[in-house]
Nucleic acid binder design. Sequence first.
DNA 1: CAGACGTGGAA
DNA 2: TTTCCAAGTCT
Length: 315
Amino acid sequence: MLQQTTVQAVKSYFDKFLKRWPSVEDLAAADTDDVMAAWAGLGYYARARNLKKCAETIARDHGGIFPDTFEGLKALPGIGDYTAAAIAAIAFDRPEAVVDGNVERVMTRFYAIETPLPSAKTEVKAKTKTVTPLDRPGDFAQAMMDLGATICTPKRPACVLCPLREGCRALASDDPQRFPVKLPKAKRPVRVGAAFVAETEDGKILVRTRAQSGLLGGMAEVPTTGWTSRKDGETGANAAPFAAGWRRAGDVTHVFTHFELRLTVWHAKTQKQAVSGGRWEPIDELGEKALPSVMKKAISEAIPQAFKPQGVGKS
DNA sequence: CAGACGTGGAA
DNA sequence: TTTCCAAGTCT
């Protein structure tokens, strides 16, 4: 959960997740859609699919016991270089070089590495390997990460308080904050599309499940057009899944990692009807479904009280 | 190897 | 308001 995600964002999800699926076997036996629903809002949904696959692999192929080597861990779904090294070092006391974003920052500063990231990753990994001790490698890894999280911060590092102040080349030079050097990032393109919130008299809306891979893979959505960067992209009611009294509810903007999405949201009161691949879900149960944030945003644009606590704001 | 892959909080 | 970025991984 913590991959590219802050502790604050993760905390409540982690608590709920472990309460619901306390063991690897529990998660392996879980319904994948329930897992996706429990992950909804956290982002990077491939992590949820991979975590589930990982649990299944460990339950089925490893007798419910985690591998205790870097190579064994790395072979599992969702466990890459960083996570494999972190588990090996912290859980199994193995002297692996643990390099996350924090360690990258500490190392590139301490050695004043001018090579921009991500090219410098190889060099950082090699340097980290040379400084990782055979004794308590897990504590060393956590100390490096905590140093980066609390002292050697991205902005305004607290060098006065730093235990590594003496040998730090970045501090000795001029501007420690200059490191790590990073390549300039490309501008985010804008994509447009339309989303259709079809609502019945008895308080249900039409939803469907997205493809298992790719953007928001395996998550629920209301029917939408494709999301295109073309200027003449479809945003009108003519692209709706069926004819109805569609009213324009408004626009929502949502920022993804690699593009910005502007959705025109359409709303209609309709009869419940059969739509290929679609299903009608009660609005008051939407909060428990696998709906990503962008979809909650779109639905709220059409039905403002959809995700509000029940019985509140009614009067 | 470069691009895909979410979201919300902080500066 | 805009930009950055957070315990990265997969293709």
